[in-house]
Each structure stands twice: as structure tokens, then as C-alpha cells.
């Protein structure tokens, strides 16, 4: 959900772009972190852990904690809280630690 009205801040959003999450098409703003666009779309679970298979969302949102690792354009272990959204990105839920290709 986007904050439409704010007493202090005017949000400068980039242009609207499309991306996919696990094959489904979503919209976000270019240049915002992938995690922000996913969160807006109501997606909280970004991955499942390697050992216990627990659901994972982001935690710090500034690139400290690496809780938000996802597969982006086939590349695993991308910190989506700081990775900027681009047109046509393919974002996938990461299961475990990701594979070396």
C-alpha cells in the first residue's frame, strides 16, 4: 500500500515499470528498492531459509542484515532492500542458499 497523503514529505517517484515476482506481473517505480515494490504489492515472504525452511522477509531495509536475499534475473542472494527496481526484472522467492550456476 502506498502512502498517498503525507503532512511532511512529497515523494518523488520514478516512472512506473513492470516486473515479475515468481512469474506473476507486478508494477513498481523505477529506482526504488525491489523490496519496496514487493511490499506495496502485499508480498511479505521473500524467501525460505536453508536449514529450517522458515519464511523470511526483510528486517533492516538498509542493506545491513541480508535477511531479504532473493533471486533476481536468475542471480541468487541479491539484497532486494537495496537493489533498485528496473523494467522487466524477474524476481523470484529464494529457497535456501541459492545455486551457483
Amino acid at each position: 500500500m502506498r502512502i498517498e497523503q503525507h503532512p511532511i514529505i512529497t515523494f518523488n517517484k520514478g516512472r512506473k515499470v513492470q516486473f515479475t515476482f515468481d512469474g506473476k506481473v507486478y508494477e513498481g517505480y523505477e529506482g526504488e528498492p525491489i523490496a519496496a515494490a514487493l511490499h506495496d504489492a502485499g508480498i511479505r515472504v521473500l524467501g525460505h531459509t536453508h536449514k529450517l525452511g522458515r519464511p523470511r522477509g526483510f528486517y533492516c531495509a538498509i542493506g545491513n542484515c541480508s535477511s531479504c536475499l532473493m533471486v533476481v534475473n536468475g542471480k541468487p542472494n541479491v539484497r532486494v532492500c537495496v537493489e533498485k527496481l528496473k523494467e522487466g526484472m524477474a524476481v523470484e522467492t529464494q529457497i535456501g542458499r541459492g545455486d551457483i550456476k
Binding site: 500500500m1 502506498r2 502512502i3 503525507h6 514529505i9 515523494f11 517517484k13 526504488e32 528498492p33 519496496a36 511490499h39 506495496d40 511479505r44 515472504v45 521473500l46 522458515r54 519464511p55 523470511r56 522477509g57 526483510f58 528486517y59 533492516c60 531495509a61 538498509i62 545491513n64 542484515c65 532492500c81
Partner: peptide, 30 residues
């Protein structure tokens, strides 16, 4: 960096650091 808290299920999505919440709403408007 932010301190974390130990309680059962503290790793569930939806449990965020205060800085993360601030970043999300005040920088990205989400």
C-alpha cells in the same frame, strides 16, 4: 545497526527494525 530481540517467532515476516519501517514509509512512501 539495530539491536534485535529474542522471542519465539521473532523471524516472521512483518517483524521489522524501526529503521526499516522508517525507510519504507518515509523514503519510499510504502
Amino acid at each position: 545497526s539495530e539491536k534485535f530481540q529474542a522471542f519465539p517467532n521473532n523471524d516472521l515476516p512483518g517483524i521489522y527494525g524501526a529503521g526499516a519501517v522508517q525507510t519504507l514509509m518515509n523514503v519510499y512512501g510504502v
